[in-house]
Amino acid sequence: MADRNIKIAVLSGKGGTGKTLVSVNLAAAANKSTYVDCDVEEPNGHLFFKPTAVEKEEIFVKIPNVNKDLCIGCKKCVEFCKFNALAYGKELIVFDEVCHSCGGCVLICPQKALTEKEKLIGIVETGISQNVKTITGELKTGEASGVPIIKNLLNKAKNEKGFIFIDCPPGSACTVMESIADADFCLLVAEPTVFGAHNLSMAYELVKVFDKPCAAVLNKTTGEYNPSEDFCGKYGIEIFAKIPFDNELGEINSNGKIAVRENYSNKDLFYDLLVKIKEAVK
C-alpha cells in the first residue's frame, strides 16, 4: 500500500443519502488519506474538514476570440457551431457561456480569424485537515460542465499514496461517470425508501457499465422493511455496512462535524467499514 493508491468512489444515484457522511468519515478514519470532492456544483466536504494551508487554482477552458480585421463574415463558424454559441449580425458575436470549448470554429475558419482565449469556469482548492489531504472543486454558477474541473481534481489526486476517497456528484450524468472512471472500487450508499432503492438501481447500472467491483452501504436504517436491502439481495450486492438512523450521528453531521473525530458512540462502524474495504481491494 505504501507505494500505490486505492481509489474508492462513493456514489448513490441520489442526493442526500450520505455519500459525504461516508466518504468524509472513511477518509478521517484511515491513517493517512486523500478526500476528493467531485460534487462540483454543491461541494460540501470542505465544510466538515475545514482544511488549512489551502492552495487555490483557477480552472479555465478555451473560448474563441475573433480578429475583426480578418473576419469577412462568411459565417462558416456560425453554421458549424453545434451549440449555437456564435452569431453574425454586423460582426461576429461569441456567447461565452454557451460555448463548450470544442475548438471547431477555430479549425474551420478559412481566414484564420479566430484564436482562443481563456474563460474561468471554477476553482480547485487543496488543503490539509489532520491526516487528510482535501481536494475540492467548485463550478461557477451557470457554467455548462463540471467535467474539466473533475478531471483536474482527479489528476491532482493520482500521485497521492494510500486511500483516495472520491465523493461523487449525485445522479448518473457525465460528471458521475468522470468521477468513477478510474476508481478501483465503488461504494453505493442507499436510503431505506423506495426512492433510495430506485436510485440505488441507477447507480448500480452505472457501476456495471464501467465494470467496477462494488458493495453497498445502507444508511439511515430503522429496522423496518428496507427496499434497498431487498434490491441488494436480489442482485447479489454485498452490504458492507448498515448505518442506523441515529439522532446522535444526525446531530453531529448536521453541525458539520466529523463523527470519527468526535465522541460519537458508534464510530467503530466507520473503522469496521474501512477494514471491509481493505479486504475487498486486496
Binding site: E41, E42, N44, L139, N253, S254, G256
Partner: peptide, 30 residues
C-alpha cells in the same frame, strides 16, 4: 437538486418556488 441548468430550466415560467431546506451545515450552504 443543484443549481445548474436543469434547475434553471425548471425555474423559468414559474410563479412561485418553495424551497425545502435541511437544517444542516451542508443544507444551509446549498
Amino acid at each position: 437538486p443543484g443549481i445548474g441548468c436543469p434547475v434553471i430550466a425548471s425555474l423559468s415560467g414559474a410563479d412561485a418556488v418553495l424551497i425545502v431546506a435541511e437544517p444542516s451545515v451542508s443544507g444551509i450552504s446549498d
